[in-house]
Amino acid sequence: MLQFWRILHGGIRNFLRNAWLSTAATAVMTVTLIIVIVSFISSLALTATIKGVTDKIDVSIFLNNNTTPDQVAAFEAALKSSGNVASLMYVSPDQAVANYKNQNKDKPSLIQALDTAGNVLPSSIEVKAIDPKHLDAIEAVVSQQANQSLLDPTAPPSYTGGRKETIDRIVHFANFFKTAGLAASIVFVVISTLIIFNTIRMAIFTRRDEIEIMKLVGATKWFIRGPFIFEAALYGIIAAIVAVTFSYLVLLSSAPKVASYIDFGSTISFFQSYPFVILGGELLLGIIIGAVSSILAMSRYLKL
């Protein structure tokens, strides 16, 4: 235990004695950890945003107004059998008009237009899909020959329109962003590993007399290596604390400004619910990057 404290003390002393290099290494590590955390947050927020968008989307299948209740029931049963239906609801023409008036109560001109047209809106089946990204099964049921006669010929089912493409685009963008975030994280982990490797290598060179003396007086290998590992781990510890604090503050201040585009609400609540999980994860990553780089540098340049 005493030896352990001496090793920690040696690591801190090395860190301070090497202030400029230590600062540079810590800064690179901080950038890396911020990128990791941003990538993680974005992934969470994008997932939440996509879920929000797709949850709002129902497939609307507009029906011919001559459809009988029996036909509607049969059609509903067929849709359910597709396996991708979370819930469905029949909306009668009257209900459709009521809904429309309710949605547009601030826009009297639209309501007036509907009145002028004789309050005619098609009945519909509103389907909430289990997986809105894969509507093929529902689409297949709708396009069955037997069901074609039930559809309103003037209003095609809504999934075939622009909304599906928009969803696809969002999903595509989100996946791209997640992949890019992962790639950037990996690249920066590699960069900081290389920089810390170099910092420790320099430290080994500048302290070679001291290392020789340590060997001379009978220091064990780990007593000599320990301070170098702890010094590098210290870069990770400081960087993790800075990165988590910085990311949280930026997230808090920027979330309201981008709220209409991206939903950070769940991310912030995740941050607030599990601050120590996030900090712990970053600390662990920082310490691992530091320790591994340092061990690599020593295996190459510190022959004991």
């Binding site: 005493l2 030896q3 001496r6 003396i213 340590m214 007086v217 009978g218 220091a219 064990t220 007593f223």
Partner: peptide
């Protein structure tokens, strides 16, 4: 003292 520290001597 350094020679004693590396061998784990007490303070």
């Amino acid at each position: 003292a350094f020679a004693l520290e590396v061998s784990g001597a007490r303070q």
